[in-house]
Amino acid sequence: MKVLTAAVAGLALFTFANVQAAYPDRPIKMIVPWAAGGDTDNIFRPFAPALQKALGGTTVVIANIGGASGTVGAREAKGSPADGYTLYAVHDYIHLTYYTGMSDVSYADFEPVCLIAATPSILTASPKTKWNTMKEMVADAKANPGQISVGATLGSTSHFFPAMVEKAAGIKFKYISYDGLAQRMNAILGGHIDLTDGNLTQKGKVDAAQLKFLAIATEKRSPELPNVPTLKELGYNVIYSVSRGLLAPKGTPADVLSKLEGACGQAAKDPTFAESMRKQGTDVHYLDHKGYAEFLKQNDALNKDLSRDLGLLKR
């Protein structure tokens, strides 16, 4: 009897839960194309509850669809129905994987929703290296070309940033594949790689003398790191940060998009989200649908040029 009552009660919930209502009436899936625990995941995980609040309580579920430099998730997002129930958390890699020929998915396959954050890159060195400054590193690299090892997700942002430094300083690195920041940290702490693309999330380890920040790729020094010089002031004109935003599959209805955009703007102002971004050394950098569309277009052209400059352009 108990089973029967439970079944009937379940059935009732089951059917009533499905009354048609205005968007959004069911959970929204946010595709993060990297493994959980990576920096992209760390930024969108606190963003999801803020977005959820702004959407009036609709559940926002993060789906980590990682693999092959983020291209698996990109393909999955592209193939999802354009009904506003699938969002795609993206960063600059979408341009790079397209131009380096690793994937066929381009930013133009999506509708921009909003840009939320930018994380400046910091050139980070292993504690086991003998240099303490950018200058010593460059001198060493000039003396031993191709000997300094850099851990990077090949073909993605963590590969491009050191490559830009390489070009600006006229030096040559050796690249070793370490997908994702978490793996690179294990390797650099053990001294198995010399350099990597880091960011402010690793400040704790620098304070504990487990890592060395050589230079930051911003216009001005970061208030969190007053002692770390910018690449620009050292004479290497490299400004680089990884920008993260939300996209929706192409063809998502305009009213749905505007609803999402509004919620996104509200969520970006959420104090809890802001606090967790500050802890991760990331600037909340909100752009609406139009602004983000413009940004993506410029960024795409920029990344195409970058790929060409670095000899990685495949299309």
Binding site: V3, L4, A6, A7, G10, L11, L13, F14
Partner: peptide, 11 residues
């Protein structure tokens, strides 16, 4: 009933 219960409860 048990099939219905399985589907409904898990959902």
């Amino acid at each position: 009933i048990s099939a219905l219960a399985s589907a409904a409860i898990t959902f």
